[in-house]
Structure formats: C-alpha cells, structure tokens
C-alpha cells in the first residue's frame, strides 16, 4: 500500500508544528524521519494513525485500502507496556493469532531468556524498549511506524534490533524517527522541516 501525506498542517496554540507537510510512504521502502525535538515528528505519526486530526490537508491510504484507519505496528515514543505482565504476555496480547510460544521466540532474538517471564516493570529501560519493538513487529500491520525506537539501547543492541526489524518487516513501508542515521543507510532520509514533494499523476 501507499500512504500519502498531502499538505498537512497542524497548529498548537497558533504555532505551526507542521506546515504544508508532504511525503509518501510506499511498500518495500524504509524511511528515516529526522528533525530537532519538538519539530512535529510525533505529531505526524499521530496524524498518520488517525489519533490527531490535521488542521488542513489529509492523509490518503492508496491502493484499495478498505479500512478507515491504517493497521500499524507502532513503537510509541513511550514504551506503553502493560506493567504487571511479562514480556511474553505483552507481545502475545496484541493478536489472537499470536501464541505465547511464537511471542517468546520473537523476543528471544533481542532479549535474554530469563527476562521474558518477569513483569515488564522490573526490566531496564533498554529491555522495555526492545519488548516494544518486538511487539510492534508482531502486530498484524500494513505499515510500521517507529518513534525513536532505539532510545536507551547501546550500539550492539541497536544493531541487533535493526537487523531484526529488517528481517521481520516484510514488504510494508517502514518509518523510523530518530537523530542518528548510524546503521540506517537503507532508509530514505526525510527532513520533517521540508518533507518530500508529491509526484503528481
């Protein structure tokens, strides 16, 4: 599928956070959305998810998409995990098709096995982040939106996470926001302040 962001603007308290922003996400491609903090990256993701309405412009889901909001595998800026439950439960809960065994196998690629059955509130920040990444990859989805997914990860774990994302993402479009493009050379860079002009026709 293709997601088209068409001249989207969003104001908070009269200040433009997004100003006539355009870009297009299409199958098989990965994108790295960069820009200083507070430049509207998270707002853009929320608009893509239908959680925030743009003040003008629109998001189009092209290619015969029959749902009103896109099915997305999301890593939120915060972890948004269910604290009293284990990593396995947190991943398995997102879909009926996901058995605890499959969730465990997926998690073991990024986390030590003894961390998987503790309540996630007992895990370190980096471990929790990795649980959120695995969960996003396991959600049945048509697009992957990862908001600062590597916060709190050291270089080695960041590399491992990127490898897993590449192996698991399939053909859906992937959008990562972040500050550093290290190991992310496969992504098309998009600057939040300029966007990418739409190719009409």
């Amino acid at each position: 599928m293709t997601i088209q962001v068409d001249h989207v603007s969003k104001f908070f308290d009269g200040q433009p956070v997004l100003d006539n922003f355009c870009m297009e996400l299409s199958d098989g491609n990965s994108y790295l959305l960069t820009g200083p903090s507070g430049s509207g990256k998270t707002t853009l993701l929320r608009i893509l998810l239908g959680l925030t309405r743009p003040d003008s412009g629109r998001v189009r889901l092209l290619g015969d998409y029959k749902y009103s909001a896109v099915h997305a595998g999301v890593v939120f800026q915060e972890d948004r995990l269910c604290e009293p439950f284990s990593a396995v439960e947190n991943v398995a809960m997102v879909s009926k098709k996901l058995s605890p065994r499959i969730a465990r196998e997926a998690l073991e690629k990024l986390l030590p096995a003894d961390a998987l059955d503790k309540p996630v509130r007992e895990l370190s920040g980096g471990m929790r982040r990795r649980v959120a990444i695995v969960r996003a990859l396991c959600v049945p989805s048509d697009v992957l939106l990862f908001d600062e997914p590597f916060t709190g990860l050291d270089r080695e774990n960041r590399k491992k996470a990127i490898d897993l994302i590449l192996a698991e993402k399939g053909s859906v479009p992937l959008l990562i926001t972040g500050h550093s493009d290290e190991d992310l050379g496969f992504c098309h860079p998009i600057d939040i302040r300029t966007g990418v002009p739409l190719q009409m026709g």
């Binding site: 099915h71 999301v74 939120f76 948004r80």
Partner: peptide, 8 residues
C-alpha cells in the same frame, strides 16, 4: 490508545 491502534 495503544489498544485502539493495535485493534486489541
């Protein structure tokens, strides 16, 4: 919101 996005 997470539950809504993931259609849990």
């Amino acid at each position: 919101e997470m539950a809504q996005v993931f259609r849990i």
